[in-house]
Design a protein around this nucleic acid. Sequence first.
DNA 1: GGACTGGTGAGAACGGTTGTCAAGTCGCCG
DNA 2: CGGCGACTTGACAACCGTTCTCACCAGTCC
Lengths: 132, 132
Amino acid sequence: MTVRMTRQRAAVAEALDESPEFRSAQQLHETLRARGDAVGLATVYRTLQALVDGGEVDVLRTGEGESLYRRCVTRAHHHHLVCRSCGRTVEIDGPSVEAWASAMGAAHGFADIEHTVELWGTCADCRAAHGA
Amino acid sequence: MTVRMTRQRAAVAEALDESPEFRSAQQLHETLRARGDAVGLATVYRTLQALVDGGEVDVLRTGEGESLYRRCVTRAHHHHLVCRSCGRTVEIDGPSVEAWASAMGAAHGFADIEHTVELWGTCADCRAAHGA
DNA sequence: GGACTGGTGAGAACGGTTGTCAAGTCGCCG
DNA sequence: CGGCGACTTGACAACCGTTCTCACCAGTCC
Ligand SMILES: [Mn+2]
Ligand SMILES: [Mn+2]
Ligand SMILES: [Zn+2]
Ligand SMILES: [Zn+2]
């Protein structure tokens, strides 16, 4: 039952620490391979899942159904403002939205309310780079 | 280039009209098959996609990556409060959330802000049925 | 070092969705 | 009414991200 520290787990954790953007399992896998620190794809997925379960990493799903992972600064519940183009992410705390969500649920007789709230946009740098 | 009315397209549209819940392409396909109004699965997907493109049907993706479809009453932008258990859906209009989302984006220099906001819960009927 | 046991990875399996393409049909025209 | 042609259909294969399988590997403890 003991959790072991392995080269692979350390490598995945390190790759996550190095990128402030949300990244997919496959991107992380490729990054590690390119760096000569190869880790099996299945292991990347397993490690990410464990980190998510432990609350150390956040996941979000793109509109195309791919999962993106990121080690967030805030451990508490929060949302994200993500750049569509480069993945740059701002962690957002929205007390007003939290209140709104539970009020809406209660008003319609729903219980155990959960909410997904994500914001997507184009960051200032990407606008400067791509024109427009 | 003309769009034709076919038995299949009418059947999919009718199945959507009959259910106020969000339903998956496969559920709709099965419903039609059971009713003896069989339509190929690929055609169900194609028809749903066309309806979504035309703004006649709303889609949302479950946490498991499945797309759910529903003909909403409101044509204007809105969100949903969905029962995890039976799919019952309440259309929600949240002006405060809209304002919050664009304000957040602007505050961090992001443009072309889009947002996904969905609420999940257990409706009163499902709570009564399953106890708790 | 040796045993115990959790971890690894190549490849198969999965599940929802989309692509392929020969066969079928709606709509129109004569 | 036929007939024609472009649009549509559907069985099945291909896709794609993710998970499962299982024989082999390697931390950990003694
Ligand atoms: Mn929240
Ligand atoms: Mn909105
Ligand atoms: Zn950017
Ligand atoms: Zn319900």
